[in-house]
């Protein structure tokens, strides 16, 4: 393994960066993920702004959350810093800045995951995992060869996608989901969305229950399948994840794009064309990618 030998040269490439013409591929892939996190964070910006106004107007005290994790100021700061970290990361090529931004992003998103205002919003959970990926990935830029880093990055991104879908599938293995009753209550009964509006227009209540039953089972089976993404060839895995995420948005709820955009970012990096030639771009050393 010649990774150590290329380390300083790659750092030079990244940090001095006459990057405008040809950005190193790892930087591009990291930008894709960061941009997708930014889309996730901004997709419901109107919702978040309204939420912050309500939180400031009607603060809630409870015994469970520490005071600082009920504070509207902390929540607003964490959200703002997350967006700022994404923006800086998108325009930076210095590994230290990229790592710092990703670390800040991961920390802020974790705070959102445990904050009274946002613990229930899966947007922050999926963004947190994408940010954690970015932190690990940027920490290896210049330490691993590009090829190796990209291959490991894609593998870990598929692992993350798999475990997120696994979480969805396992929590639904209960009679309420298998019978379709839960999704009937949430979506089919009254949700104002084009699919459910059309179904309500054309089918009786009994038929809607039958449709919701098979819809719910299809969701469980699909999530089970996507929990195995890490076992598939990488492009197949990425396409399956992309199709599934887009399908969820188009057929369930467009607002879910805030949850799914960052997952789409993780999936897209697996579509990256064939790895670079198995020669270090920087040193020309032969590259061992471990078989």
């Amino acid at each position: 393994m010649s990774a150590a030998g290329c380390s300083s040269d790659t750092n030079l490439l990244v940090s001095t960066s006459s990057v405008s013409a040809t950005l190193p591929t790892p930087i591009v892939l990291n930008r894709i993920v960061i941009a997708s996190i930014l889309v996730s964070l901004l997709w419901k910006i109107r919702y978040f702004l309204l939420a912050f106004a309500v939180y400031f107007e009607y603060p809630l005290h409870d015994e469970f959350f520490p005071a600082w994790l009920s504070s509207s100021g902390v929540s607003l700061a964490a959200y703002t810093l997350s967006v700022a970290a994404c923006l800086v990361s998108l325009f930076s090529v210095d590994r230290r800045y990229l790592m710092g931004c990703s670390l800040l992003l991961t920390a802020c998103l974790y705070i959102q995951c445990i904050h009274q205002h946002s613990y229930n919003d899966v947007t922050f959970l999926t963004c947190f995992w994408s940010a954690a990926w970015s932190f690990w990935f940027t920490s290896r830029i210049g330490r691993d060869h590009d090829n190796l880093l990209i291959e490991k990055g894609v593998f870990i991104s598929h692992l993350i996608l798999s475990v997120i879908f696994l979480g969805g599938a396992m929590g639904k293995l209960t009679p309420g989901y298998w019978s379709g009753q839960v999704l009937y209550d949430i979506y089919f009964a009254a949700r104002d969305f084009w699919v459910f509006n059309i179904l309500r227009e054309h089918f009786s209540n009994d038929t809607l229950h039958a449709i919701s039953r098979w819809y719910s089972r299809f969701v469980i089976v699909t999530e089970m399948g996507c929990a195995c993404l890490w076992l598939l060839p990488r492009r197949w895995a990425s396409w399956l994840a992309i199709i599934t995420c887009c399908g969820i948005c188009l057929f369930s709820n467009v607002l879910l794009l805030s949850v799914l955009a960052c997952l789409l970012g993780l999936a897209v990096i697996g579509l990256h064309e064939e790895p670079l030639p198995r020669q270090s771009r920087v040193t020309g050393d032969a590259l061992d990618v471990g078989g």
């Binding site: 409870d62 469970f64 959350f65 520490p66 974790y110 995951c113 445990i114 613990y119 899966v122 959970l125 999926t126 947190f128 995992w129 475990v163 997120i164 879908f165 696994l166 979480g167 969805g168 396992m170 929590g171 639904k172 209960t174 009679p175 309420g176 989901y177 009753q181 839960v182 949850v259």
Partner: peptide, 22 residues
């Protein structure tokens, strides 16, 4: 929000749980 401790709950918050339970 009834985990034995807040720290334990914080640990579980990274476990994906979209559309879980009835």
């Amino acid at each position: 929000l009834q985990s034995p401790s807040f720290l334990a709950w914080c640990g579980l918050q990274v476990v994906p749980a979209m559309y879980n339970l009835e």
